[in-house]
């Protein structure tokens, strides 16, 4: 099991954003999480790599318990080093790219492998260029991010995440901030990644992508997983009323 969440709950003060979340992702699986905004989709991803801490429940990555809390209290001592190790297993792509604006494209990609994983610089550059070729931006390696289009920036962000050689890729609405004509190039890269067998969890509003690429789709509303199934089941034959009404609105 690559990822497992058990009875996970998360609240910000009195606001419950996640309630009793249970789900698993197996190796090579592509899981899409859909649902209205504010339903807690992104929070799930952010709880996996400790950008947010869960309030209670347990989280496993590659069958290893990495977080266990009961009403906000740690049940498991977890060191900064351990958090860093977990994070290197999880590549994250953000809605707003979050590239480092003061570094060139290539520097963005090699920064973490060098400082975190202590990869020798020439190796990091070599692999970085391979990844840039893969996302089709090798010629932009010396540009600053501000010179790139949104789509290009997001492809660089994907390459940056891949540079850490993650086991799982997390996508947090990777195309929501893009102009419509730029969405395609990013989805194309993600599809390729899925075809290469990468385990992926994708929070998205792109129903077409979910239908085509996902092995499994989760529908979330108000902090709960309301329905779960193959794209076929969810999109053609939704059982939950809320799933039905959501899909009616977006499709």
């Amino acid at each position: 099991m690559m990822v497992k969440m058990e009875k996970v709950a998360k609240s910000f003060g009195s606001l419950e954003v996640l309630k009793n979340i249970n789900f698993e992702v197996t190796k090579g699986e592509v899981v899409c999480i859909i649902g209205p905004s504010g339903s807690g989709k992104s929070t799930i991803l952010r709880c996996l790599n400790h950008l947010e801490r869960i309030t209670s429940g347990s989280v496993y990555i590659e069958d290893e318990l990495i977080d266990e809390r009961v009403s906000g209290k740690d049940q498991l001592k977890i060191s900064q080093k351990k958090v860093s190790e977990i994070c290197s297993k999880l590549g994250m792509v953000f809605q707003r790219f979050n590239l480092f604006p003061h570094m060139t494209v290539l520097q963005n990609i090699i920064e973490a492998p060098i400082t975190v994983k202590k990869v020798p610089k020439h190796e990091a550059i070599e692999y970085g260029l391979t990844l840039l070729r893969k996302v089709g931006l090798e010629d932009k390696k010396d540009e600053f991010p501000s010179r790139l289009s949104g789509g290009q920036q997001q492809r660089v962000a994907i390459a940056r995440a891949l540079a850490m050689r993650p086991k799982i890729m997390l996508f947090d609405e990777p195309t929501s901030a893009l102009d419509p004509e730029l969405v395609g190039e990013v989805l194309e890269v993600m599809k390729e990644l899925a075809n290469d067998g990468m385990t992926m969890i994708v929070v998205t509003h792109e129903m077409g992508f979910a239908k085509e690429v996902a092995n499994r789709v989760l529908f979330m509303d108000k902090g709960e997983i309301m329905e779960e199934g193959t794209p076929q089941q969810i999109f053609s034959n939704p059982k939950n009323v809320r799933t039905k009404s959501f899909l009616q609105k977006v499709l």
Binding site: L51, S84, M92, V116, K117, A161
Partner: peptide
């Protein structure tokens, strides 16, 4: 987002 991106890449504070 900059701090989040750095942390997500495994960097310490």
């Amino acid at each position: 987002g900059q701090m989040e991106a750095a942390k997500a890449l495994g960097m310490s504070y």
